[in-house]
Amino acid sequence: MKWKGRQASSNVEDKRGMTGKSMAGIGGGVGLAIVLIVTLLGGNPSDLLGSLNSTESNNGSSYVETDEEKELAQFVSVVLAETEQVWTEEFRKNGLEYKEPKLVLYSGSVESACGWQLLR
């Protein structure tokens, strides 16, 4: 595909190198119990969640991008931008608005809002 030099999308979220562990790392039941205890003791559970999330983003250093992956990430971004153009136009022709999706790049494992309800 002739893609070099073409516009890249601004909708790429690069989460490569993150382990994806936050509350999921603690486990639902235990996590809930901790939140409950913190609340009962008069604390703010969102402080706890915030600190867990910040640990997540500090793990980024473990990932080293190869030259090939760097180019591939650019390619993916350009293809996404091309789909945005096409579908924005198709939706517009039908009087609809195309809401651009985000694209998450990840390595190993990732958190999403989906369990089995994901589409492949």
Binding site: V76, L80, P101, L103, E111, S112, C114, L118, L119
Partner: peptide, 27 residues
């Protein structure tokens, strides 16, 4: 939030309207 591993392959999640891709899928 639910975890998904690369072994799932690229996927789309209607719940958050995001595409998820591990670039190792290219290989």
């Amino acid at each position: 939030m639910r975890m998904a591993a690369s072994s799932v392959g690229p996927f789309y999640c209607p719940g958050d309207m995001k595409l998820y891709i591990d670039l190792s899928f290219y290989q």
